[in-house]
């Protein structure tokens, strides 16, 4: 199992698209593999942000306007809590599997 996952990662990292629309992330929980990219696309007419202060991975992708996207590569196994700094009601989780 682990070998397959690692092999998959080595060959091609997937990119997962999350939409930010009406002050919601399009998914509440996203399951990805280590090495996958997650791209956050803003479909609202105002700015959004993406950050995580989780132990598994912390980052701040800054803010981006309508039509723009920010992406992050999921570096290690664990649960990453994602929030929008501007709109604290916007929350989602990324479960990163081996």
């Amino acid at each position: 199992m682990a070998i397959i996952a690692v092999t998959g990662y080595a060959i091609a990292a997937n990119e997962h698209i999350v939409i930010q629309k009406d002050k919601h992330f399009s998914v509440k929980i996203l399951t990805v593999k280590v090495g996958d990219w997650v791209s956050f696309k803003n479909d609202d007419a105002f700015f959004h942000n993406v950050f995580s202060l989780s132990d598994a991975q912390s980052f701040d992708l800054g803010s981006h306007g309508q039509g723009q996207a920010r992406r992050v590569q999921m570096a290690k196994e664990g649960t990453v809590d994602i929030e929008c700094a501007i709109h604290p009601e916007m929350k989602m989780q990324i479960k990163v599997m081996k």
Binding site: A45, I86, P88
Partner: peptide
């Protein structure tokens, strides 16, 4: 103004 002041309460409950 509606970038932040949205909805019936005219706020996005956000931080700017």
């Amino acid at each position: 103004c509606t970038a932040c002041h949205q909805g019936f309460n005219f706020t996005d409950y956000g931080f700017h």
